[in-house]
Amino acid sequence: MSESFINEAKQKFTTDLVFRAEDVPMRCDPPAEELEQTLHGLMQLNGYIIKSLEEIAGRGANAVTYRAGKKFGHEVAKYFEKKSDVEDALRELSYILHGQYTFEPWKPSDRDEYIVEENGSTFIYLVFHDCIVRQSCRRIGQEQGGPLCQTLCGYVVGAVEEITGRRGKLEIIHTGPNACLKKLILK
């Protein structure tokens, strides 16, 4: 007769490894191939939580996730050097977002400058290439531009506000499977 499931499970989760309080893991374990499941699980978890939030809170979900992202952005950027120059602030921002989001400044060909000063505010277009939020939306077949994307908008705005000391806004202009265009406005 085959072993009971409980016995099997107990055997699987039994080792003779010794862990001491001072032991610090020296490498990321398991290898990338096995991490895929975890990554996908996280993407699904995030995606479905936000999807459920949207179903519960309706259009209000965007405001909630934006505020949550913004708070997180302020927290993360709190220890970063303060910069008043927009280009320096963007460089700082790319450090913060490194590995999760990559972006580049963008302008249509008929415009001379990337950074535009207009009526006391400054704006710049940013093309987001890598984006874990986009990946999560696509993982669960959710449309882009909704509350999960608003978390990222809030996150970026919070970080930029913290770095520059100016009030900011990030508008989603266009979304695509490979990149998204956003407009960063600083007041």
Partner: peptide
């Protein structure tokens, strides 16, 4: 000439 983004949602 398009920069491809990382496509993590595609399952191995």
């Amino acid at each position: 000439g398009v920069v491809p983004c990382r496509r993590m949602y595609v399952s191995m």
